[in-house]
Simulated scan of single mutants.
Amino acid sequence: MGLAWLPGAPPATMPPSGGFHQLSKALFLAALLALGVFAGPALAAAPPEGLEARLDAILARGAPGVSLLVYREGTLLYRLDRGDLAPDARLPVASASKWMTAALVMTVVDEGLLSLDEPIGRRLPEFQGPSGEITLRQLLSYTAGQGGLLGMSDLLQDSRLTLSESAARIARRSQVDPPGAAFRYGGPSLQVAGALVEQATGRRWADLFAERISIPLGLKSTTWGHPLRPRLDPAEVTNPNLQGGVYTTAEDYGRFLGMLAAGGSLEGRRVLSPEAVAELERVQTAGKPMAYRPPGMGDVDAYGLGTWCEAQDPEGACLLSSSPGAFGAYPWIDRRTGLYGLFFMRHHLPLVVDQIRRARTLILSAAP
């Protein structure tokens, strides 16, 4: 969600440090994803009664337009476009970028080139002392101790740096918390994760994203930049803001969600292992203080890797994942019904988050 919570801004996954029991839960979820256990019966294409009124309530809170797309099993069940927003509008999605960032990182973990639990100081020697003990898992779950969104340390960086230079500048900053001690949303950690990815693969972030995400999923209008610098030429951005820099369309983001909802593949093309998808959704913050949550998400107490967990089962498996952005994009996956989708707009999320969730509740409660 990176930003308009800013003042004035509109081979297999490594086991977690908690041991075999946590890994077993992740593998169990992965098996359910692969088998499609969470998917329900086919839903009629008609949206539930009253849904358009819920979208109009979003417009009444000042959003100029909103698109809603709802899917199941790779099929678009219905789409509603209200207000002044073109169906092919390409918008900055702010923190909805985080889900995409974490997914690309996990392709490298799947490949065995990175481990979620290796101390980053082994690969990035500029991280010394306690900061050298930070893990990739902590970077992706905002528990690395590097501060939160209000520090703006990554958002103020030049977009023409390299990700390696970005990480080196972050390494010079003092730790706010010991690694793993607390959750602080929106700090500079994802830039460090990006530097690790580029070092491990020898590939530029945007090129690797195109190769591993955009091309396999057929994303036609998704690029990386900076959420507060819309005039940047993506070809010239070598330090994309990884917590909030994606520009995309509702259709592109829907296809990305379809891959995650299906356990890592879409239309026969595998992007992630089921185990990696399960690890993205597994709660990483259990037992840690939620020291900073942005406006709009103050009632959510669990975070995975690049994604919030809004509902869990009694065993702690995430049932409702989301990655809302401060500019109003709100993608989600519900494992109970097999439905997934997104609300797509450009407006201050805290002004419309309640109406978005009421609309989503209506959608989920109507699912057979």
Results as ranks from 00 to 15, higher is better:
Met14Glu: 15
Met14Phe: 13
Pro16Cys: 05
Gly18Asp: 15
Gly18Val: 08
Gly19Gln: 11
Ser24Ile: 12
Leu29Ala: 05
Leu29Ile: 11
Leu29Pro: 06
Ala34Tyr: 02
Val37Phe: 13
Ala39Phe: 13
Gly40Met: 05
Ala45Arg: 15
Gly50His: 03
Gly50Tyr: 04
Leu59His: 08
Ala63Tyr: 12
Gly65Trp: 07
Ser67Asp: 08
Leu69Lys: 11
Leu69Ala: 09
Thr75Ala: 14
Leu76Asp: 08
Tyr78Phe: 09
Tyr78Thr: 04
Leu80Thr: 00
Leu80Ser: 00
Pro87Val: 09
Pro87Ser: 07
Leu91Ser: 00
Pro92Ser: 14
Trp99Cys: 09
Asp110Gln: 06
Gly112Tyr: 00
Leu116Phe: 06
Glu118Val: 00
Glu118Tyr: 04
Glu118Gln: 12
Gly121Thr: 05
Ile134Lys: 02
Thr135Gln: 02
Arg137Met: 09
Leu150Trp: 10
Gly151Lys: 05
Met152Tyr: 03
Ser159Ile: 08
Leu161Glu: 10
Thr162Cys: 06
Ala167Cys: 02
Arg169Met: 10
Arg173Leu: 15
Pro178Trp: 00
Ala181Val: 09
Phe183Ile: 03
Gly186His: 00
Gly187Lys: 01
Ala193Ser: 07
Leu196Tyr: 12
Ala200Ile: 02
Arg204Tyr: 08
Ala206Asp: 10
Glu211Pro: 01
Ile213Ser: 12
Ser214Tyr: 05
Leu219Lys: 10
Ser221Pro: 00
Thr223Ala: 14
Arg229Asp: 14
Pro230Val: 08
Asp233Val: 11
Val237Trp: 11
Asn239Val: 08
Tyr253Leu: 15
Met259Tyr: 04
Ala261Lys: 00
Ala262Tyr: 02
Gly263Lys: 06
Glu267Met: 09
Val271Gln: 07
Leu280Phe: 07
Arg282Ser: 03
Pro295Gly: 05
Gly298Val: 14
Asp299Ile: 06
Asp301Lys: 10
Gly306Cys: 13
Thr307Phe: 03
Trp308Cys: 11
Trp308Leu: 13
Gln312Asn: 12
Asp313Met: 01
Gly316Gln: 03
Gly316Glu: 04
Ala317Tyr: 09
Ala326Gly: 15
Gly328Asn: 12
Pro331Cys: 09
Leu342His: 07
Phe343Cys: 09
Leu351Trp: 08
Val353Ala: 07
Thr361Cys: 04
Leu362Val: 02
Ala367His: 00
